[in-house]
């Protein structure tokens, strides 16, 4: 009983540690990529300290209020986003043995947690009772309703060869061939949809400059800091999941499983974070059209190809 509680606490701590570490790494990567794009000198030490310095500065600010905001939901929005990210990271097996949450329906839990991201972002935009922020909130609803289907469907595709919705079988089913090669459409669709999900880079529609920051427009001080952290948490969670279901998770030669998993997660995280420097922000309407008429059919094709392959492999 006690031992069980202790091991649960230990696993929860592991998730928290991975989350904090990953978030910090994502913030530093963003600084590095930004400075590289600006073509200014990159000082690694300064870049490593910069996120902490910025965070400290925000922590010292007095929070601002708006006219009659919905204070409860406003306070809840970043917390909900972070909690969802934490739960979705928790179902990802970190190594063959270090599995924080072993759920039979791992990818469904992940998809469910990520489906609720829409709630957090919508509340963040709705709550301050500010016009541009409201526009941003509704943009994200449009975005969210569009990415959710292809996002869930490509995840289902990875479950086919494993014959299970749990993540450990999904990773072990990639023993001979990673899903990124076996299902070539999967990872690209996944990456696009998770960019939308974490409202980052070209798909940062609710945080665009045209709405002066949108959902974070009225944020200052600690709430702003928490919102930024929660957003990076989501990026970390989706990178880890992508590494597990498409890049074979902890599988790999020579190095220990945990290192492989960390490297693969880092690779996807860097890819996602860097996208901000290469792609301009997309129009909401264009994204909706493409998500429904291109991404969703592609995701379905991906599932069927994966199914046929799995069937042939099983014969």
């Amino acid at each position: 009983m006690v031992g069980e509680a202790l091991s649960t606490a230990g696993l929860a701590l592991a998730v928290v540690a991975v989350m904090i570490g990953g978030t910090y790494v994502a913030a530093v990567l963003d600084v590095l990529f930004t400075r590289l794009t600006m073509r200014v000198a990159v000082r690694p030490l300064a870049a490593a300290a910069l996120p902490l310095r910025r965070a400290a500065q925000l922590a010292l600010q007095r929070r601002t209020l708006t006219e009659r905001p919905d204070a409860g939901t406003w306070a809840l929005a970043p917390a909900v986003l972070a909690a969802l990210a934490a739960v979705s990271l928790a179902v990802v097996p970190l190594t063959g043995t270090l599995i924080p949450v072993e759920a039979d329906t791992g990818i469904v839990v992940f998809a469910a947690a990520m489906a609720l991201v829409v709630v957090a972002v919508y509340l963040q935009g709705w709550s301050p009772n500010s016009p541009l922020s409201l526009v941003a909130a509704y943009r994200f609803v449009a975005e969210g309703l569009s990415y959710e289907i292809p996002f869930a469907v490509v995840l289902i595709g990875t479950a086919l060869p494993a014959r299970s919705l749990a993540l450990v079988p999904i990773v072990t089913s990639q023993e001979h061939l990673w899903n990124v090669i076996r299902q070539p459409l999967g990872l690209p669709v996944y990456l696009i949809t998770v960019l939308a999900l974490s409202f980052w880079g070209p798909l940062a529609l609710p945080e665009g400059q045209d709405v002066a920051g949108g959902t974070s427009l009225e944020l200052s001080g600690v709430p702003r800091l928490l919102w930024r952290v929660a957003q990076l948490n989501v990026l970390v969670a989706v990178s880890a999941m992508g590494a597990a279901v498409f890049l074979g998770g902890w599988l790999g030669p020579w190095l220990p499983g945990g290192v492989w998993m960390a490297l693969k997660t880092l690779f996807l995280l860097a890819l996602l974070v860097a996208s901000r420097q290469f792609f301009a922000r997309v129009r909401t309407e264009s994204f909706v059209v493409v998500a429904w008429t291109v991404l969703t059919p592609l995701a379905l094709v991906d599932v069927f190809l994966a199914g046929i392959q799995a069937m042939v492999a099983a014969r």
């Binding site: 929860a12 934490a86 839990v109």
Partner: peptide, 12 residues
């Protein structure tokens, strides 16, 4: 697993 997930949710 459910208990751990719930713990993590509440903690975060």
């Amino acid at each position: 697993g459910g208990a751990a997930a719930l713990t993590i949710l509440v903690v975060a």
